[in-house]
Amino acid sequence: MAPSPLSGTSGYDALCSAHLLSCMPFIFQSAAALKKFGIFAHLNSARAGSSERELLEVSKLPSESLKVLMQAAEAFGLVEVREGKYFGSKISYFLLNDERARVNFNFTEQVCYQGLHFLSDSLEQMKPAGLVTLGGGETIYPLLSTLKEPARSSWFEFDHLYSNFSFSQAIEVLLKRKPKVICDIGANTGIFEEEICKADQEVQLYVMDLPEQCRLIEKNMAKAGIADHVRSVPVDLLLNQPLPNIVADVWWMSQFLDCFPSAQVVEILKKVKDRVRKDDRIMILELFVGTQDFEVGDICLASFSLYFTAIANGTSRFYKKEEFIELIEEAGLEVEEEHNNFKGGHTLLVCKRSEN
Rank of each mutant, 00 (worst) to 15 (best):
E295G: 12
S22R: 11
V58E: 05
T133Q: 09
E57H: 13
L287E: 05
E124N: 08
G332Y: 05
E64V: 12
R152H: 12
R53F: 11
A312K: 02
D13G: 15
T315A: 08
I39T: 01
E172R: 09
P62C: 06
R275H: 06
V335C: 10
F158H: 11
E323L: 03
I246H: 09
L349H: 04
N220S: 07
A2R: 15
A75Y: 10
K352N: 08
N220G: 04
R353A: 13
V132A: 04
A227I: 14
F76I: 03
S45W: 14
L147Y: 02
M221Y: 01
R100F: 08
E99L: 13
S316I: 03
A41E: 08
K180H: 15
E330C: 12
G84S: 06
I27W: 12
H160A: 13
I246S: 08
A199E: 14
S145T: 13
K219E: 05
A31T: 04
S63E: 14
H160L: 11
N245R: 14
E138V: 06
F105Q: 08
S50W: 04
L205Q: 03
L174N: 02
Y319R: 03
T139E: 05
F26Q: 12
Q110M: 09
K90C: 11
G297N: 06
E336M: 15
D298V: 07
R53Q: 14
S45F: 12
F158D: 00
L134F: 07
R177H: 13
E338C: 12
T108W: 10
N106L: 10
G137L: 01
S17K: 07
A151P: 04
L306T: 10
I299N: 02
Y141S: 09
V132N: 03
L327M: 10
F167C: 04
D236V: 08
F94K: 15
L301W: 06
F318Q: 00
D200Q: 05
F318R: 00
P211W: 06
R152V: 07
L174Q: 00
